[in-house]
Structures are given as C-alpha cells and as structure tokens.
Design a protein around this nucleic acid. Structure first.
Lengths: 182, 182
DNA sequence: TTTTTGGCATAATCGTGATTATATAAAAAA
DNA sequence: TTTTTTATATAATCACGATTATGCCAAAAA
C-alpha cells in the first residue's frame, strides 16, 4: 500500500484491508506505523541486496543496474517506498541512519563486484571501486526517482538508454594487453 | 521550517512562529498547508533556475553543478524541501506534475548551455544536449539526496570529488582541431 | 468623517487516524 | 482436560493539528 499510495495516504486500516485483516492484527505484529514502513523498506532493500549477491547476476554492471529500474508496477512500487522513506528520513535522524546502513551495503556490494572484475581484467584498474560504487548508486537513485515521478515519460527503452548513457562512461574496460612485452 | 524538520514535522504554527506571526496570518496568505510547501519548493527551484540563467555562472558545468551541492546549512535546507516534496509527490499525481515542470525547466536550461558550449567548440558535438542535461540532473539529484541524509559523511571536498568523478566523464571536451585541413 | 477593506490574532471546531483497551477464539502447553 | 498463550477482531480513546469562525485594528477609500 505504501508503494501504491505513498506513506502519507496509507492508513493502518488500508494495510490491514490489503492483507485481509484488521488493524488489530497489524498492531499485534508492528510496534507502530513507522515499523510498518521500515518493514516495507527492508523488503525492498533485501530484494536489491539479493540481486547484487546472486551468483547468476549479469556480468555487465549497466545491465545489472537496469534490473532495478522502475520498468514495471512492482519495481515502481519499490521506488515509491524508498521515496516515501526519504520524505520521512529528512526530518528523522534515526531513519536517516537506517538509510545510510542500507546504502553502505549497496556500495560495498558493488565495490566487491568491481574489484572482482578488475582482478579478472575486465574493468579498468584505474577506477576506484568504492567511489564508483557510490557513483552507480547515485546515478540509479537520481534517475529512478525522476522516472518514478514521470512514469509516462520514461518507457522502457528510454530508461535503458538513459542509464546506459550515464553509467557506461564510468566503467571503462581494461586496456587490452598483449600477453607479454609490447 | 520545512527544510529544517521536514514537512511531516512542520506544523502551520511552526511556520507562523518562525515568521513571528500566528496561524491566522499564514492561513490568510496560503490556501492550505500544501500551498506552503509549494511556495517553499518554488523558492528553492527559482534559486536553481536563477543560477542556471545567471550571466556570470561558471563556464564549467561541473563547477556550476557544484554550486547546488548541500555544502552549507542553506542548501541543505533546500534539499530537504525537495525531498519532503518527493515524499508527497509519490502519492499525489498533481504534485508529481509540478515536479516534472520544474525538472523540464532544469533540463532545458542545461541543454541550452550545452548547445552553446558545443557551438563554441568547447564541448564535444558528440553528446546529446537534452540527454546530457537529464543526466546531469539525475546525478546531482541522486548524489545530493545521499549527501543530505548522510551529512557527516560528506564534507565539502568529498562531495566535490564525487561529483567530479560522476560528471566529468559525461562531458568530453571538443577535439582540438587545427585551423584547416589535417 | 464614515465606511470598507485588508492584515492579523485568538479561539472554536472538527475530522482523522494512530494507538489502546477489551473481548473472543483458537492453538499450544501443562 | 484445564490453563495459558497467541492471533485476531471490534470498539473506545485521544491527541493532534488543519481548518474555520470571529473580532479587532489600522489603513485606505468614499
């Protein structure tokens, strides 16, 4: 429901109804409304982390990133949850800390991937893994927020093209190097 | 106040007190609370647009962009206003449309600058002005949201370095070209 | 000078919706 | 089988804060 209508338009009753339950059930399982939002956020975050760590994720980082784009209703909902959370975190340091914790995980996950690809000679050793990880996150974030608020303007092919244009230049391939001397 | 505490933690009374006035004054001038938020947002947006159009803005786009970074309390507040607005716009198509209108202006402003610099032979003619404008916006946005929520982690030099790393690769200089033939 | 209007304050209203309390049934434990 | 705990529902409370109503004062207009 939060991903559907935003946290402000979502009542606990709405959550309850969507679960074929009543507010009694919700309050039984959740301390308060914030806890519900946190749970939703965690669900979204775990999705992303799972993807980052999945063994059969795409090798190409741009392709990997494109899996997070708000291309269908599901991922659109996910993004709306994040954005609702941003709105709250802005005025609540505790939530901001939680946000940071997730982002640290994202960054570390990406940095690990980058390091591996550098070791395998696929990505240029010239780029800094952590910084590039942060860059990828910022780019995805900024763009997806935009695409989420302007759904109609950003059909799949345009989203992917924009992502490609923004991300590819940050990910130079390793120089091809003849086996010895040169 | 919205930029200080977020829209959720801001009461009309808070706004009134901050203005040395009472809610009566506020409601006299504003239709409702949303109108207050809209006014705050417009203030922030006009700041940015003014900067984009100012004749003595920096030539270098990265430098220009860095003027928007949340480096001091003032611009931090500005970013918190945007983020509060995001949180609302997520569940309110009318607000989302307003957001889009501002973003279109930002993009067009940037595209105009890019086109001029291409004409002057300073930026590569190979990049698409509109697409690059959108890219710049997304990058600034995504990164500033992060920096806003993680204030402590992002001192000035780190913010600038990160922005440079993300933006510079998108803005290749025009090839140097000998005056004739070659 | 008397009206009228605009700016502002104080105070009342009023809906909303989170939270809390209570009741009941089902399941688990004793 | 009794007792306790857990899951769920219904209903009451309760605070909060946006909105609305009212009144006053000053300034502008008549």
């Amino acid at each position: 429901m939060i991903g559907e209508q935003g946290i402000d338009n979502t009542r606990l009753v709405d959550v309850a109804r969507a679960a074929n339950a009543t507010t009694g059930t919700i309050t039984h399982y959740f301390e308060d409304k914030d806890a519900v939002l946190l749970a939703a956020l965690d669900h979204v975050a775990q999705n992303i982390l799972f993807m980052l760590r999945s063994p059969d994720r795409p090798d190409d980082l741009v392709e990997l990133a494109s899996l997070i784009l708000p291309l269908d209703e599901d991922s659109l909902r996910d993004w709306r949850v994040w954005m609702s959370f941003f709105g709250r975190a802005v005025g609540d340091p505790a939530l901001a800390r939680i946000n940071k914790a997730y982002y640290d995980e994202f960054r570390d996950g990406l940095a690990a991937i980058i390091r591996r690809q550098q070791a395998e000679g696929r990505l240029s050793p010239g780029i800094d893994p952590a910084m590039t990880g942060d860059a990828i996150i910022s780019i995805i974030d900024g763009f997806c927020i935009r695409a989420t608020l302007e759904r109609e303007e950003w059909p799949e092919h345009r989203q992917k093209a924009q992502l490609e244009a923004m991300l590819r230049p940050l990910l130079p391939k390793a120089e091809k190097r003849r086996s010895k001397g040169g």
